[in-house]
């Protein structure tokens, strides 16, 4: 492994900023996503809404299927492994995936430990609901963070809650005296060095995207307004009436999230959005997986 691999992996996340990462299940969908302006695609066998509907154990996708998507597009390809599943992560690294999502969307393989991501050359993105979770994942070697939201619901409320909480905790940390950080590190169960970095920079040490329940250009713009540096869209695109049009509209909404007139144009005639399910009506709460 190169000595500065973690830095290079943080740098790749920087290049993805201001972009939309889309879940795709086939090379055809990957091509639609790339043509619509996705900055990366997440290759998986079933999108979260279908994982939720199917129930059962959800695992890493077939490497052959992931390779098919790698060959179909020129943009970075990500794939998910189960929380704590070191072997799935090694397999994804072996097929030279560009980013691994150690994801609560799949069934956790380990209910105590996350993967020690510092032992991998390949970069990892992890979900977080608050500053504590984010910094714990970064301490384990994650070089990109996303909100967990509640995947596969089309309901953005959890992603909003997680992003707001993270940002308000960051603001609180920056307002403290430096000698107060030791106590906060204890409270958040995080290394004090990472907390000091948040204190001096006013942001997470890695790029922070929004994910979970984003279904419309307005949802994407909302997450950017709340401080996201980019957006993951899972079920929202290929569960909607006109995926290509909706995908392109969400990409433009992320770039022009401050321009309400533009957002209005983008929101017109997109066809039906994914039907969705209210986050408080569901049985499987994915966001509680992996703390």
């Amino acid at each position: 492994m190169k000595p500065n691999q973690a830095e290079l992996n943080r740098n790749l996340a920087q290049m993805l900023k201001g972009g939309v990462i889309m879940d795709v299940t086939t090379p055809e969908q990957a091509k639609i996503a790339e043509a619509a302006g996705a900055c990366a695609v997440m290759a998986l066998e079933r999108i979260p809404a279908d994982i939720r509907a199917a129930g059962g154990v959800s695992r890493m996708s077939d490497p052959a299927m992931i390779k098919g998507i790698q060959e179909a597009v020129s943009i970075p390809v990500m794939a998910k492994c189960r929380i704590g599943h070191i072997a799935e992560a090694r397999i994804l690294e072996a097929i030279e995936i560009d980013y691994i999502d150690e994801s609560e969307v799949l069934s956790p393989a380990d209910d105590l430990h996350h993967i020690d991501k510092t032992k991998f050359a390949v970069p990892f993105v992890c979900g977080a609901r608050d500053l504590g979770e984010a910094l714990r994942r970064i301490a384990e070697g994650a070089t990109m963070i996303r909100t967990k939201g509640e995947p596969g619901t089309g309901d953005v409320v959890q992603a909003v809650r997680h992003m707001r909480k993270m940002q308000s905790e960051i603001r609180r940390v920056t307002s403290l005296r430096e000698d107060e950080l030791y106590e906060v590190a204890k409270e958040l169960q995080v290394p004090v060095e990472l907390l000091k970095e948040v204190h001096s920079t006013g942001k997470l040490p890695v790029v922070n995207f929004a994910a979970g329940g984003v279904a419309t250009p307005a949802d994407a713009a909302l997450m950017m307004e709340l401080g996201a540096e980019g957006v993951f869209v899972g079920s929202g695109i290929f569960k909607s009436g006109d995926p290509a049009k909706r995908a392109a509209a969400i990409v433009q909404a992320v770039t022009n999230y401050k321009d309400a007139k533009k957002l209005a144009e983008l929101s017109e005639n997109l066809g039906p959005a994914m039907v969705g399910i209210n986050a408080d009506e569901i049985e499987t709460i994915m966001e509680e997986r992996g703390k």
Binding site: Q14, G18, G19, G37, C39, A40, S74, V251, T255, N256
Partner: peptide, 15 residues
Amino acid sequence: PGGESTVQVKLLKDL
């Protein structure tokens, strides 16, 4: 700047 050229070209044209 750096980023994904496919995305930037698409957005340049769309906008």
